[in-house]
Design a protein around this nucleic acid. Structure first.
Length: 579
RNA sequence: CGGGGCGUAGCGCAGCUUGGCAGCGCGCCGGCUUUGGGAGCCGGAGGCCGCCGGUUCGAGUCCGGCCGCCCCGACCA
């Protein structure tokens, strides 16, 4: 493609509306334009990158044996009422009515539609297992679209759904998708990390998220560099700390006027936050309970809920006053008449400071077992930077990441709700066991840019770059330059995706645009080099520049592309071996 | 939905405090020159100053309401 014949509206300055790197660069490099907050037009260059990603995803899905279909975007609301997700999704569901007043939702995901298909079409165990997938635009009324294309109301998703006869078979289907995901993200050149995740409103028994660590990420993940353990922050299990020695102090009340937070009390008493215990009152299953974590730790409500196996919420100030006899900020375990759940690491400190259940008062020198009894010890806190890895002797790191893929073992949640059953070999009706698997196509592009750019612009992985080679014809008024560039374009164009910049513009502008747009292999044809019968070859984002004779330029550029592809292939192999 | 910031030419911004001709840079159009890191000169086009209302002889500027955009939080398959 010739630059002059396509549409690449680059911007010299950063658009004021863009803050995160990928958003800024995608606007500046002419990949996207905004229609409104949460919806973007993909211009030719952006569309090409999307198609490259889609091609990788499709190839790997097919390779894993999944069958591509296309489901409607418009779903009858009744389908969503059947599974109860009409309420669960709430305002995120886009709703509309047709001329007859029938209500529809715009599909934010397709479990309902696929399960409906399975219910009518799958009747025998002979048809199982089978996995369907589609690549299609999803609609979600996001409370807050942001970060350019990282969170939008409309986005392209690859969603796959496996149908299996039993749980063992689901494990196979799940693993096949998991492995395909590793290959996909490796091929896209992303430094992805699979982490254990919570199943959330999707339901089901197991789930992994595929994350790309980078600053623009909305999620928090904990990882261990030593053994490769990774988990969503909500799911991360810090190693339990060593127990503290025996008590040495005796409890004593101290006045702490107006000091109701850990920070205030620790500063006031000149003690470290980890020497304090944080006591929170929750209402669990309708009854008040106390939860204790170390002062420097935070309660993970999700873990707490799963340990207690019931719904829970923080108690309101009235309840706290009633239960502890003190205003918010002075609760403590000593003398409490409700069940006390303590995080394992409460045992890592002795002679603690706790609230006295009395306004403006704390107690120092408190020890569990002597001054109060713990009803049950549980894992109730979030991991923090520096915690021990639960799997090895390593240390956990905490960092933000972008979720680019998510796989779930759904079990029978949807098939049961919608009556998707099959007859087994004995003629007994059984419920289909399902899994679902999503990839955010647009996010792959955004995270690739987040992870691979410099101050000049994008540095594309060769596999998802809109073009593999850009030829810069520096001097558009020089016949020799134009002829040499055209010849190269002709030679390479047949086998590679080549962009030829032969615009009537200054050399400086072409260099700047080329770096901004970030095509991996640059072939620079200029009067200066041509005098010596040479052109220059560069790889975007690397220091490498070399001059090659004009007649060898095509082969050299081709070789460079092959070398870059080979680097990616090696990463795919590694991904395969480690998954 | 709560907090903060912003809205003036396609893009980036000034002008608003103290009401009185709508500005600058980039980009765009025409011409000449120029060509290895965002070229120069000359000429030109382009505006509902987010919208509605109020105050005023007069509002981009002051007041009220609304809308939109960005960030933080809540939420998030």
């Amino acid at each position: 493609m010739r630059w002059s014949e396509t549409f690449i509206p680059t911007l010299k300055e950063d658009p004021s509306e863009a803050e995160v790197v990928s958003h800024r660069l995608m606007l500046r490099a002419g990949l996207i334009r905004k229609l409104f907050s949460g919806a973007y037009t993909y211009l030719p260059l952006g569309r090409r990158a999307l198609l490259k990603v889609i091609d990788i995803v499709r190839t790997e899905m097919d390779r894993a044996g999944a069958l591509e279909i296309i489901m409607p975007t418009l779903h009858p609301s009744e389908l969503w009422h059947k599974t109860g997700r009409y309420e669960d999704f709430g305002d995120v569901l886009m709703k509309l009515k047709d001329r007859h007043g029938r209500e529809f939702v715009l599909g934010p995901t397709h479990e309902e539609v696929l399960t409906d298909l399975a219910a009518t079409e799958i009747s025998s165990y002979r048809q199982l297992p089978v996995t369907f997938y589609q690549i299609q635009t999803k609609m979600r009324d996001e409370p807050r679209p942001r970060f350019g294309i990282l969170r939008t109301c409309e986005f392209i998703m690859k969603d796959a759904y496996s149908l299996d006869a039993d749980v063992d078979s689901l494990d196979n289907s799940y693993n096949a998708m998991y492995n395909a995901y590793c290959r996909i993200f490796a091929r896209a050149g992303l430094p992805y990390v699979p982490v254990e995740a919570d199943t959330g409103p999707m339901g089901g028994s197991a789930s992994h998220e595929f994350m790309v660590p980078c600053d623009a990420g909305e999620d928090q993940l904990v990882t261990c560099d030593t053994c490769g353990y990774g988990a969503n922050l909500e799911k991360g299990e810090p190693r339990v700390l060593a127990q503290a020695g025996p008590a040495s102090a005796t409890p004593e009340e101290v006045a702490t006027p107006g000091m109701s937070t850990i920070e205030q009390v620790s500063r006031f008493l000149n003690r470290k936050p980890c020497e304090l215990l944080k006591t929170l009152i929750f209402v669990a299953g309708g009854k008040p309970i106390a939860v204790i974590v170390r002062g420097d730790h935070d309660v993970n409500e999700l873990k707490l809920a799963s340990a207690l196996k019931c719904e829970l919420e923080l108690a309101d100030p009235e309840t706290i006053q009633e239960v502890t006899g003190a205003p918010v900020g002075f609760a403590g375990p000593v003398g409490l008449k409700i069940p006390i759940y303590a995080d394992h690491d409460v045992a890592s400190v002795n002679d603690c400071i706790v609230g006295a259940n009395k306004a403006d008062t704390h107690i120092v020198g408190v020890n569990h077992g002597r001054d109060f009894e713990v009803t049950e010890w549980i894992g109730a806190r979030y991991a923090v930077e520096g915690d021990g890895c639960p799997r090895c002797a390593g240390t956990l790191r905490l960092r933000p990441g972008i979720e680019i893929g998510h796989v779930f073992k759904l079990g029978t949640k949807y098939s049961e709700a919608m009556g998707a059953t099959y007859l087994d070999e004995h003629g007994h009706a059984r419920t289909i066991v399902m899994g679902c698997y999503g990839i955010g196509i647009n996010r792959i592009i955004a995270s690739a840019i987040e992870c691979s750019h410099d101050e000049d612009g994008i540095i594309w992985p060769i596999t998802i770059a809109p073009y593999e080679i850009e030829i810069l014809a520096l001097n558009s008024n020089d016949e020799d330059v134009m002829q040499a560039a055209e010849e190269l374009y002709g030679k390479l164009g047949g086998s590679f995706d080549v962009l030829l910049d032969a615009r009537k513009a200054s050399p400086g502008g072409k260099f700047k645009d080329a770096d901004l747009v970030g095509i991996p292999v640059q072939v620079i044809v200029g009067r200066r080099g041509l005098k010596n019968g040479e052109v220059e070859l560069r790889v975007r984002g690397r220091g490498e520049r070399r001059s090659v004779p004009v007649e060898q330029a095509a082969d050299a550029a081709a070789g460079q592309v092959q070398a870059l592809r080979e680097e990616i292939n090696q990463r795919v192999e590694q991904a395969e071996n480690s998954s």
